[in-house]
Amino acid sequence: MLTISDMVRVLNARVLRGGDKLDTPVYTACCSDLMSDVLAFVDEKTVLITGLTNPHVIRTSEMLDLKCLVFVRGKVPTDDILDSAEEQGLVVITTKLTAFSACGLLYDLGLRGVPVPNAWDTEDK
């Protein structure tokens, strides 16, 4: 079973918040800088890999009950943003890798993409 601490290891990441929850199991992930798409396509409690560090990343995570946020390209949000992440129980880590490399390593580790049930059926409803 993979956990957030496995992700921290392969990404050589720094844990910014939620260090007490690193044993949380993880199965899937998604990667996007477009919160509109995250809100539209993510249906499960998953991991979000992003380079965007504004408060809406945290709010999007809260609405979707995400488990872990991975900031890439060495990005670190401001303390008030991190505090609101901590308040909702989110694990936040940052890696110096690019999104592409981080995703590759996590896929190699065994994480898979979230299913996208809404991708083709939206015109019909």
Binding site: L34, M35, S36, V38, A40, N54, H56, K125
Partner: peptide, 13 residues
């Protein structure tokens, strides 16, 4: 900020 992808109204629906 990561919005304006034109997903809002369809996603609400």
């Amino acid at each position: 900020l990561g919005f304006g992808a034109g997903m809002g109204l369809p996603n609400m629906k």
